[in-house]
Nucleic acid binder design. Structure first.
Lengths: 347, 347
DNA sequence: TTGGGATGTGGGAACGGTCTCACATTCAGA
DNA sequence: TCTGAATGTGAGACCGTTCCCACATCCCAA
């Protein structure tokens, strides 16, 4: 049986306070504070003496106490709504989180990461009570959660979501343009019979991607036939597979030469089914997805896709949030990022 | 041009203090504190009156102030060392983080997630200054970072890593057993000529997995030939692909019927190369990986693997850390989780 | 010599809670 | 009627910082 006290003893000793430093250096705590912050006048000799004690005791300023008086925690929260997947390992949102983590670190913010499924208000409450300086809301959170946060009066930025509230900073992908890019690319390759797997149309992204795609086809006078469309209920691999399976008879008889899915996971699921049916990709059927998740690049065949700039999403969200926190003016409320066509083996 | 003051005004008003509540309820702040904490005697009527004011003002206790006096932040930090990938989106570590996030939320902890590449001590310093109640260290951090944290005297748990320091709680996978399971399974299928791609042997996991595999083969009198072994420099998809490509001539002429890789990413990379060479999997070559990442299950063919219980890793780490924080006795320092063989299409 | 800016330091009030202690009231049992 | 435990409330110290203000030098120009 082993008790924690052992570990405790192993450490040199628990953390010190500014008062102890002051005492040992023979100065007042105000002076120590001045040395640490670098503000105000201080005699070089005094500074060195204080610095020496700080070094010796391995003193680390208490950020909690600091936050208490400065009313700034230098913490931000990331709140994600996900039903299907947990957050961090989500192939798409995880990338955004990564970018936020990297950018926030550079800006000296620590990041609370929270996933919110079901308990909704509880996780928001948590962040609010912890007095984060600001929040980044990812994906489509329930409106009541947004209102709740909004009413608390804390700065926040929405990523890849939408809300009814006005005057909120949004960072989104130009999904409609991306849809058009996909259509332009496929038709440019000569494809005319294209099957489309469109994820939940209640989702802003899926909706816009489909519409961009459709608009382009309309524009070139080759409109999308309703029978060429299927709607997976969720934007998952499994749904992609099942939907493809379900529509396989029509697909075969329909003379389709290409497939567009409104996200990569659906595309991959569909592709798996096609491969299992010994369909040669891209020779018999070309496949294009949307998102640009990592898996798409390592699949066999690797998946052509419209890549969302998740790095920029996270980075921009962070930068804007920092501005809001600093009360700096933000001259654009809606940041729209341009996606990129990544051509791979599947087309 | 839009300024943040607009958003500010939108909120009902900034957060209130216990003092305001007290004033409005006509009681002292001690009483309000008692209502909130539920400790001590309090008259039902007084409680209701206070509760009413709290509800009206949407009062949220300030966790920072609370932490200040209680010396407990109810925050924990997750520190991950990763060179190749960012953290959250890492297919393996991301899963552990997810489990930590879920468990921590259940235990009323908020979680700081930090990735540590290069800056090493800086991210540790950050957590320490924020006075987290404890830390979870994932993967093999540099020893000096561990020492640094250890000396500070804060409770911490190591996941999937190792250290020279004694009396540290470790949560690991039974990698050696897993290696044996892979060998047992493949030989059970009748395979005798097995090629092995073993990731960096400086990594505890890769080292043990290879050794378990080798031990089993030795045990059944069919030892692994050194020529059947290749060492990718990193445990990545690309390295798996390249290594397979490089050893392809030997592989073809060697009469191999199976491939074992010490992690899934390497296995997938190798598999991609094999598929591109029109090798039929599993008919001509059976492939087995290790880790049990999501991609393995959706690949075509899906990858048989030794799955590490990442959920239990995160959960256990959290539970143990909570015990350490609470100064409860921990009767086992090394928690070893049992991996599971997941049979899929590739074997 | 004297005034006053520049330089250097300390005292003490916040920040928003928790918690101990003191004190007041009620009430049951002797 | 008295006593003391149970119940209920408030005052104020404290957690570890920051920052304002007061005060003490020092130095240089008038």
């Amino acid at each position: 049986m082993w008790e924690r006290s052992h570990i405790q003893k192993a450490g040199l000793d628990m953390s010190h306070t500014i008062r102890e430093i002051a005492q040992l250096a023979g100065v007042s705590k105000s002076t120590v504070s001045r040395v640490i912050s670098g503000k105000g006048y201080i005699h070089p000799e005094t500074r060195d003496a204080v610095l020496k004690v700080i070094e010796e005791l391995q003193y680390k300023p208490n950020a909690v106490a600091r936050a208490m008086v400065s009313q700034r925690t230098h913490n931000i929260g990331v709140l994600i709504y996900r039903r299907e997947y947990p957050i961090a390992s989500h192939p798409f949102y995880g990338k955004i989180v990564d970018a936020i983590l990297a950018t926030a670190a550079r800006m000296n913010y620590s990041v609370f990461v929270t996933t919110d499924h079901e308990m909704s208000l509880r996780s928001a409450d948590f962040m609010l009570e912890k007095r984060v300086d600001g929040l980044i809301l990812i994906s489509r959170l329930q409106q009541n959660v947004i209102d709740y946060i909004h009413n608390f009066g804390i700065p926040y930025v929405m990523v890849n979501g939408s809300t009814d509230v006005d005057n909120v900073v949004h960072v989104v992908n130009r999904d409609q343009d991306g849809g058009m890019m996909a259509a332009e690319y496929l038709t440019g390759l000569g494809h005319r019979r294209i099957f489309v797997l469109a994820g939940p149309q209640t989702h802003r992204s899926h909706y816009l991607r489909l519409h961009g795609f459709r608009d382009y086809l309309n524009g070139i006078g080759s409109p999308l036939d309703p029978s060429s469309l299927a709607y997976p209920q969720a934007s998952t691999f499994e749904q992609g597979y099942e939907m493809m399976q379900q529509h396989w008879p029509d697909f075969k008889s329909g003379g389709y030469t290409a497939l567009f899915a409104t996200n990569d996971m659906i595309a991959l699921g569909a592709m798996k089914f096609l491969i299992e049916q010994s369909v040669r990709i891209p020779d018999q059927v070309a496949v294009i997805g949307f998102d640009g998740i990592d898996v798409a690049s390592i699949y066999t065949p690797s998946l052509t896709t419209i890549k969302v700039d998740t790095e920029a999403m996270g980075r921009t969200a962070c930068t804007l949030l920092d501005k809001l926190i600093d009360q700096q003016p933000v001259n654009e409320l809606d940041i729209e990022l341009v996606p990129e066509l990544i051509i791979r083996q599947s087309t």
